[in-house]
Amino acid sequence: MQFNFNSTEPIYLQVADQIEEAIFAQSFAEGEQVPSTTEISKEFHINPATVLKGMNILVDAQLIEKRRGVGMFVVPGAQAQIVEKRRNQFYDDYVKNLVSEARKLHITKQELAQLIERGFTTQ
């Protein structure tokens, strides 16, 4: 797991984002346990209540679930759910910015399509 708390976003949102990212990257596989509140809290010196608040966002989104007395586990299908969510946000998060930046640089629609084509073939 790779946590990176540099941004100035509220910490509990960062906790949620980072765990979600780890599930998406399959660092935490479906059905597996995620680190406990205390573990995360200790590792990054974050108040346990803050960590819990972040985790609860993921519980509400049904990406992780609480098993009494054991801990938090990744819900089966969580990764697919994240993929679905990110696909839905793809247009807003990336395409809009891409087009707006292209316009500022006077890149035409055809040129942009060609660049995308190049991106797909080289990577």
């Binding site: 708390f5 200790k42 590792e43 990054f44 010196h45 974050i46 108040n47 346990p48 209540a49 803050t50």
Partner: peptide, 30 residues
């Protein structure tokens, strides 16, 4: 800091921390 959190989790109680190293406790305090 790790022991503080461990101890706090095992037995929740109030801690009031007075320090000049604000960055180190910024996420720790509620």
């Amino acid at each position: 800091y790790q022991e503080l959190i461990d101890s706090y989790t095992n037995r929740p109680r109030t801690f009031v921390i007075s320090t000049h190293l604000i960055e180190e406790i910024a996420n720790l305090i509620e």
